[in-house]
Design a binder for these strands. Structure first.
Lengths: 190, 190, 190, 190
DNA sequence: AATGAATGAGCCTTCATTCAT
DNA sequence: CATGAATGAAGGCTCATTCAT
């Protein structure tokens, strides 16, 4: 809340926008500091490298995304099935923009081939959490189903979500998300 | 077939490997020419720009992928359902490598935010064709189903394939492809 | 007249246009061969280097300019004074174009600082001849004037011509040529 | 005055020398930074492009030339005619060097064919000012002459100056400047 | 904290020329 | 004669990072 955090936050916010809209490697430090209206050195007062900023982008971005998603899903109280379906409505809202850029994590995944690097660990962690979140809702919805059944359903819903994201990004349409949503309804109704 | 084409092919092959393994923007002309063991100028005798080479990579890569996939599916003769399922076996084969890099098109998608650029057009075209390919198999499998039904099933299978690709890439496991495969079997059995 | 000479002539003509309109150093071999629609190697069958072509441009260009100028002045028969004045009318005709590029020799002079190089020798030779041409007309017009007087008048006319050329090029107007012409009339009338 | 400005000044001075002596296009950034003994990146800390440096060269060069000329002419107090004649003495001083390169503006003019580019605007502005300077001296010298008469005389003197510059550059002699000077004396005496 | 000058390896691309066909 | 692939130095410029102030 102080000036201190504000400055760092401002850099992260500005950079997050650029990284997401343009890509990580294609976005240079110069562009970031100009957009944030700070000096070169100031940037390195707050981040020891571009990668550190990139990690912060991924971390905060996922936190924000999760928080907003959860806030959106709250309206569905304790109805896990409706929540799972609503997940795709939430996705569709974000994808409505004419130049939808998909999922920051998946985009960064394409740009960071090194398996062990911090970026990849962050991506894996985030995606693992997302799958676990879906799984927990499936578990709530079908408490009596077998473990394997629930894993299959949760996995399928997760894949449909990922597929819908990249398809919406590819075609710049929300159609794929509709398809995914309908399929999820079927999966939960079976 | 002559020496002439060989040199250009060699550049494309070397570059395709690097683009796919490392990413497009992170791969420099210098690295490409060193890997291909040619002079800087030689590169520009064959390609008018890096982008042209990138487009050639996408074009040839998709051609090759489609050809190999079709060759693999031939063994299933005129059984469209088995072909659709086998699609995921084929995918799993490619994903077995310890550092699976997913789909070149989707990776490039993440790196090219400009909607109208040639890269994006190539990606859209390729993905549209892939969806159409799945759709034609679904049509063959369920000739009596309604158009909307077939669209939904084909769409879902397509999304599962995309999702499985990025998930396998994220986690470096073929597990997601197995999940997708099982789900496709259900979709076709309904 | 044969095919042989035609090809070489074509290169010279195309290059002359480009050198004059754009400048010598800024015009690349690639642009020349593309404009002439020939292969890289073909160029070097006819010229051993870019410089040789440049020299040929200057040589032929001055020959052509002199020939056209003389043809234009012929109408003034044996009236040297009118010829000297008409020289500026001729100059004005060339300078009427909206993006007048002045004198190829003077432009090349600006681009070739090396005093002893062939280009500079060509320029010096051409300018010496031009001054001598003016001098001969002055001599015809004022056969009884002293040598020093005629040298002064011829020199001044020459300088006015050079000045008018670069001024017309600077301002993209023919006004300076009119000024020069009037001054020459005064110089000859004294 | 501080260290900061010194570095930038140093680059400008080094580059000005090279641009003037060799030509603009033929002088590379590499040569400039080597002569200035700085790193590539340092250059671009101070100038956003080669063109910006080129413009600075023209701007400072003309400022310096004008200042030195005015300082030289001061000795002639309020005698405009003597000042006009002395202009050519001043010119001759500069042209005495064995490899006289003439006027930076006219040389740059030869290298920049694009009418609207900043370089051309700078050149036009400078030349317009020079003509206006001559005109003001002519006006002082002949306050009772008609406007047209003064315009003609000033114009002729200007053209003689330009002509003398390029002729001295062409022949590497100051002779043409002497001729111009004598002619100017006549023009003012009439 | 904040600054911005300095670095030099690297970016993609063009240069004039050669040479085997 | 004509071709166009091959060369590698050079073109102008950007990169992420450091450091003295």
């Amino acid at each position: 809340m102080t000036e201190k955090t504000n400055r760092k936050n401002q850099i992260i916010e500005v950079a997050s926008k650029l990284f997401f809209e343009q890509g990580y490697h294609v976005t240079g430090i110069k562009q970031i500091i100009e957009a944030a209206d700070i000096a070169k050195g100031t940037f390195y007062c707050h981040f020891k490298s571009k990668e550190e900023l990139g990690l912060e982008w991924l971390r905060r971005g996922s936190e924000k995304w999760i928080a907003c998603r959860n806030a959106y899903l709250e309206q569905f109280g304790d109805e896990p099935a409706r929540k799972l379906v609503a997940l795709f409505d939430y996705q569709a809202k974000g994808a409505a923009a004419c130049s939808y850029r998909g999922c920051a994590m998946l985009n960064m995944l394409a740009e960071s081939p090194d398996l062990g690097c911090p970026m990849r660990q962050a991506i894996r962690g985030y995606k693992k959490d997302f799958l676990a979140f879906i799984r927990s809702l499936v578990d709530q919805h079908l408490p009596n189903a077998s473990d394997a059944d629930r894993e299959q359903r949760a996995g399928a819903i997760y894949l449909l979500s990922e597929g819908a994201t990249v398809a919406a990004q590819s075609f710049c349409k929300t159609g794929p998300i509709e398809i995914a949503k309908k399929q999820v309804e079927k999966i939960l109704a079976e």
